[in-house]
Amino acid sequence: MFQTHIGVDDLMDRGARLLIVDDDPDIRELTRQFLHAHGYDVDAVEDGVAMRKALEQESYALIVLDVMMPGEDGLSILRSLDRATAPAIIVMSVIGEEVDRIVGLEMGADDYIAKPASPRELLARIRSVLRRQGERPATSAAAPGRHFQRFAGWRLDAIARQLFDPDDVVINLSDGEFRLLMTFVDHPRRVLTRDFLLDHSRGANAEHFDRAIDVQVSRLRRKLMRDGGSSGGGSAGGRGDELIRTVRNEGYMFAADVERR
Rank of each mutant, 00 (worst) to 15 (best):
D110A: 15
I63P: 01
V191S: 08
E56R: 15
A88E: 11
L156I: 08
S118D: 06
L192H: 05
A255K: 03
D165R: 04
D41C: 03
R190P: 00
E29H: 10
A204G: 08
Q57G: 08
A212G: 08
A117G: 04
S76W: 12
M51I: 00
I171Y: 09
R146M: 14
F151P: 00
R17G: 06
R120S: 07
L18F: 07
Q133L: 14
D100E: 12
A141P: 01
F34Y: 15
P116G: 07
F164Q: 09
V247Q: 07
M225H: 13
M68T: 02
L55S: 05
F164K: 07
R127Q: 15
I77G: 15
G233M: 01
L19D: 12
A142E: 07
V170N: 11
L55A: 02
A16P: 00
N249C: 04
R146E: 15
T183K: 06
R202S: 07
L163K: 01
R211D: 14
I159G: 14
M12H: 10
Y112C: 13
L35G: 01
R125V: 01
R131T: 12
D23E: 13
E98F: 13
T85Y: 05
V21Q: 10
I63M: 01
R120E: 07
L105H: 04
G39T: 00
A114F: 06
P87A: 05
L62N: 00
A117H: 07
R222W: 11
V191K: 12
G229Q: 11
I6D: 03
L130V: 05
R179Q: 11
G48V: 02
P137G: 12
G203A: 03
D110E: 13
Y112G: 08
A50V: 01
T85R: 13
L65K: 04
R239P: 01
R161C: 05
I159A: 14
D100C: 15
E46C: 04
M92Y: 02
E250K: 13
M1S: 14
